[in-house]
Design a protein around this nucleic acid. Structure first.
Lengths: 208, 208
DNA sequence: GGAATAACCGGAGATACCTCCAGTACGGTC
DNA sequence: GACCGTACTGGAGGTATCTCCGGTTATTCC
């Protein structure tokens, strides 16, 4: 059971925009309906909803749900993809108006707000780190961070030996390692520490 | 495993703040046997062992296992408690031989080695962050880190506004947010970033 | 030693996750 | 509009987690 074939190439990446091979019309309908129902049920009943009840409400069998979303985490990713997109695409905008350090802090603040509102996505973040899995969430977040990091390195504000993917790991790790009970100021402190670690000259921004 | 039992005796699941009566003799025997069997099976078959098979091998019902360990994570914590203790008690020793920064780096290295060897404990770390749960693992790790952090703040090497529990969160987050596939150098990079964030004058240790 | 009474046992059962595959129906072709 | 290949369906079933409670022991008190 543990030596299952990890090469399920049939797994379709959850990508809202582009489609690599169009689904059959009925399949696309089912897929859309599952996401829609899942979003509604997650919003109403929290993140502990049974996948079977989502499938039932969407009028499909559990098998159909699992064919589209290989795991609960994959479904979570798809459900929150639209809202996450707003956060990630914001990086370039922030960067055009702020210096890299401020942009990174601002971006992380928005990301933290998103996570705070959608804590149900945390299992997807954990799963994104797992060996075999592909996480589009993680890839998008890393891309957003990379935009800012590159700018910061070029401007000389950030250390040159820093990699965006490491910042993603630390940031998501900070979310996972804290709970809802910890207030937003706790998360803010952790994120500030992470940003401080990137700065060539961190002295000036240290306060609190 | 000779004197291992004495160590796990007082790690009762719930602490109510009151003095707790010792377990009944048969209950204590069962509890010890469960931990012993679990340790053996985790070591042999990895962390995906069914709890029912652990209970069976220990000669108890699944109900008895769950009465002693409210979840898989609680059992993992108990199993690895002895080895974790070696890591946490090491902090004071390192501190007596090294400056705070070096001690922290060395300690984190040992902690990382422990995690790498016992990756099965990671779910317990995640669970330790959950709202209602009490994690003795997390408390012990934080105590160890605190020892070093306090020394570093006093010596002026570390920022004064830093809290051990935040370092615990970032450190454990770094473990959770990476996978076994990421080599040890990946973890080392993340841990170094965390330590750098604490330093008042980080410039000198930055190399790579 | 022999009740009395907590404390503890253990496994059946409820629930959820995920897999598998025989059957169904879509969409291109003629 | 009928045919055919195949993409897709859906739910039964296997496995694991965790709960519940009638029954069984250990311990205490006489």
């Amino acid at each position: 059971m543990n030596a299952a074939n990890a090469q399920t190439q049939d797994v379709r990446p959850e990508f809202t925009g582009e489609v690599q091979r169009p689904l059959r019309a009925d399949a696309q309908r089912n897929r859309d309906r599952i996401i829609e129902v899942a979003r509604a049920m997650f919003a109403e009943s929290g993140d502990a909803v049974a996948l079977e009840s989502i499938a039932k409400d969407a009028g499909v069998g559990i098998g159909t749900l699992y064919r589209n979303f290989a795991s609960r985490e994959a479904l979570l990713e798809a459900v929150y993809a639209v809202e996450l997109e707003k956060v990630t695409t914001n990086a370039a905008d922030l960067l055009s108006r702020l210096d890299p350090e401020s942009a990174l802090r601002a971006w992380m603040g928005r990301y933290a707000d998103f996570i705070a509102a959608k804590r149900g996505i945390l299992p997807a973040l954990s799963a994104g780190a797992a060996p075999g899995r592909r996480s589009t969430t993680r890839a998008r977040v890393t891309a957003a961070i990379d935009t800012i990091v590159v700018a910061g390195v070029q401007s000389g504000a950030f250390r040159a030996d820093v990699i965006a993917v490491d910042i993603t790991a630390l940031t998501q790790g900070a979310f996972i390692a804290t709970s809802r009970d910890d207030g937003p100021e706790r998360i803010a402190r952790l994120l500030n520490l992470i940003v401080d670690a990137l700065l060539v000259n961190p002295g000036r921004t240290r306060a609190s």
